[in-house]
Design a binder for these strands. Sequence first.
DNA 1: ACTGTTACTCACCGATTGGTGACAGACCGG
DNA 2: CCGGTCTGTCACCAATCGGTGAGTAACAGT
Lengths: 219, 219
Amino acid sequence: MLNETAMAVLEQAGATEPEKRIRDRSATERAIVKAAKNLLAEEGFQNFGINAVARRAGCDKQLIYRYYGGLNGLVEAIGADLGNWVKDRIPEDAGGMFLLTYGDLMERLSLLFLEALREDPLMRRIVAWEVSENTEQVKRLSEARSKALGQWLDRMRGSLAPPKGVDVAAVNALIFASIQHLVLAAAAGGQCAGLALKNGKDWEKAATALKRLVRGVYG
Amino acid sequence: MLNETAMAVLEQAGATEPEKRIRDRSATERAIVKAAKNLLAEEGFQNFGINAVARRAGCDKQLIYRYYGGLNGLVEAIGADLGNWVKDRIPEDAGGMFLLTYGDLMERLSLLFLEALREDPLMRRIVAWEVSENTEQVKRLSEARSKALGQWLDRMRGSLAPPKGVDVAAVNALIFASIQHLVLAAAAGGQCAGLALKNGKDWEKAATALKRLVRGVYG
DNA sequence: ACTGTTACTCACCGATTGGTGACAGACCGG
DNA sequence: CCGGTCTGTCACCAATCGGTGAGTAACAGT
């Protein structure tokens, strides 16, 4: 794939084959990051390598080494955007107004998170990556992600007091763990622990079960 | 690695270097399967290939093609044992006697499953594999596993009536999903959604949170 | 003891991987 | 205009991958 500018030039000139690439470093960098993200989202981390990214970005892998210092740096660059994921993916004003209890809040946030994760293949791959490998790359991604998630939870909680006598951190970890595994298993095989997760009806069942689970602990 | 018999012979003879391999097909087959299991458990599915298995089994990869028809057949052979996992790993009489309600049962089973999964690296890798890839191999493993799990649940339930008005299948799927992701994340990075999971104390917290979650839905 | 089968090893294939050094051309300041 | 820097390309490296065909050594039956 060429730069957008390069494509425009070629099309305008009526050229049939890509001759030269426009010398635009920042555009190339963006193309590389975009290619890496798409590749990771579509193919998964299995075949995620320098060659594959360069091939998809339509540039030489040498540039990845030069601009990002290799795959590690590129992954790090991807992880840098991860902090804004929640902000980009979930409406900020989704809660806060009609949520009277902590249970209301967590039910809402759980469903929002479920929905957001379902619709973001890149994030799904990253989560799957986190539980499959333990390299330094993945650790960075994982930390960025969980940090952003925690901040999101705190921000949404606002001044709402969490229930006493309950290990909120542990319970919430379990809740979000269930959501993540459910979505990952569904994306991979269309089911989770025997529960089919394909059409919208299946997901409605899962959503009501999730609500019930959250309501069970948080009143 | 050589056959056990071969090792014995060599040691008895005082040989320092492995000269020949005993011609024992079934022993070699067992060595291959064992090597594959250990490799998968220790290294994960990332570097799980014909060459690596053969190297660890101490035999030529050609034998894997001959005896199992390639990696697929070998994985299938591994998956065949998976049906007995619950039986091997979890005490059969663990429930049934003092469990009066469905909530008692599920609390017990959840904790048993959590414990069993924590102590089985091979099974953890397989679960991680399931949510990371969608090949035919993995599908077979996944099906065998979820089938065995479902049968186990049914068997342990016995004649205990599940609560009405609750989508038991969906709720249980979420519960087991949470356990699986918790254990996987812990094994990979020592934490899950910001919750540390390293020493026994951490796991006690997680266990009580899990109990609370289960008790919340199932009275 | 000869023969055929079984168990096993070895050498090689093309493809792909991560990684590096050398080179060509566009751009910019002098 | 010239020289240096920046951007991008290409050729090549050793290593490893999955896969195959040919060959060797041990066994069993006769």
